[in-house]
Amino acid sequence: MSTPDTAPPRPTPAPATSDGSVYLRGNGRALDWATRLLALLPFAALAAILVVLFYEALPAIRFNGFGFLVNRVWSVGSTYGGVSKAGGVLHPFGAKYGAWPIIAGTLETALIAMVVGLPLALGAAVILVEKMPPQLASVAGLVLEVLAGVPSVVIGLWGLLTFGPWMARNIYPAVHAIPIPFLHNQPVGTGEGLLTAGLVLAAMIVPIVAATTRDLLRSVPVATKEGALALGMTDSEAFWSVQARWVRTGVVGAAVLGLGRALGETIAVALCTGSVLQIAQSIFSTTGTIASTVVSQLDSSQSDPTGLAVKSLAEAALVLFLITLLVNVVARMIVRRSARGAALPVGAGF
């Protein structure tokens, strides 16, 4: 905690920290305290969310044990068949909760989103910064911002009603000819499933990664680029030897932020995966993610009189929280280590 000093307004020289902090300490105490109070609120909210979630999930954690992470069956049990007690936790007969299918679904959809979305986002950012004239770049930037701003329910509906079925008719039959195990000769289905959800997620993470990459590329000093060109490099060679190296770590950070978004997206994925609690048999088959399961199962879970079903959803949410926390921490570490100017993509919204 700080010690607000009572020094008179002026004399103490402003500490010249690089980011100008500590700047206001010592005067403007009201402002100091007001902003500190406000800054504590997000922290308090996070803490409250965790406490509520953990408190809610505790009986489920006790009941499900470690098997929660590896078992494959998610069954509310017979909600009309009476209840019994195990380890002090009331539960309906036959209740068992295994979250592995939805953990796998979460990771798989996010992986597809990254594999597809990352190159597209990087390509878009590179062409936007390096080759587009300012007016065109401004329009292109608008395209990215709009993509970031499309409500997830709208993009989900589009994925469910148009994009998925269209892909299943026109593209997936070609894709399933590719001799890769998970993919080859699998039934392409109706366009609802792992691949469609992954592609829709890819579209949703592109703006995040692209906006950050754009800002990073713009921070590359011109003189360095000119130096590379002066050595006789083509501009793609110059890009790879100068800009690419300059932004490398920052891009990794941006990618991890996109990954965080892909892991936690709810509504669009709930609409496009089919949200079932099953491990996908192939890249085309339906599956579910943790977030989509919470939204699709929350209603029926509330008819479990012991409340264990809802508590198990809370436990799943807690698992997702830990995964995203891990991703965020990694992102922060990478971004911090990267070059200055590796701004988080807040301005672009996500």
């Binding site: 998610w74 509310v76 049990g77 017979s78 289905g189 099953q278 008819s303």
Partner: peptide
């Protein structure tokens, strides 16, 4: 499922099925 249930999460897994 342990009896009739509002949740279909524990239906047997069938290759052709869709949810």
């Amino acid at each position: 499922m342990g009896g009739p249930n509002t949740s279909s999460t524990s239906f047997p897994s069938v290759p052709a099925e869709q949810a």
